[in-house]
Amino acid sequence: MLLYAVVPAEATTPASAGVCGRELETVRGSEAALVAEECQRAPEASRPMALRYYEIVDHLSRSATALPVRFPTVVGDRDEIVQELARRAPQWRRRLDELDGLAELVLRASWPDPTAAADAGQPGGSAYLRRRAAQVHATEQVADALEQRARQVCRDVRRLPAIEGVRLACLAPRTAASGLRRLLDEWQQEDAARQATLAGPWPPFSFVDQQEVASHDHA
């Protein structure tokens, strides 16, 4: 069975077909439930499948607080789901309560590398290491500054791996997107060469296992 999301045990989940074309089932435990689909075979781990999976999880999350399950996770049968619920339902329920009404936004920021031009005429290992150290330092500084700004609207912030620049996951009410966009606009306007994008809101994929969320409301 393909797993989609953990929801509160009492949640009413909408009738919906899954990626395998079958109706979703909600297997309920004492405190939490797992939404799953009977699939004859594991779904292909492809981009269209992952997007379809996301659409289903997003739809679920609009009717109940949901902890999305990493795609693609398949268990053998309902008994395995029941066992998993028996083992983890209390922990999941606590997290569901903490994440009630919250969604994830991902912001990306990049900026010109001032060290690249300065060291362009200095080949060699030492110049490279100096440039690399400066890049890492600059990235940390920008990440700290952006995280500080994001925390004005985000209940929690996590740094995500990024090949270039900074990527942050923000946990916030769906309505906070405009506030975060405004903060990013301000950051971007300080230097015309800066780039920033904001994506979401999505179900809180990056925050399913966090134990503490600030209880105050910035929204």
Binding site: A50, L67, R70, F71, T73, V74, E80, E84, W202, V208
Partner: peptide, 16 residues
């Protein structure tokens, strides 16, 4: 989004 779908979320022991 794709990064989060396959890199985030609850991890449950399962098969693939």
């Amino acid at each position: 989004l794709l990064d989060r779908v396959i890199g985030g979320g609850v991890v449950v022991s399962g098969d693939i």
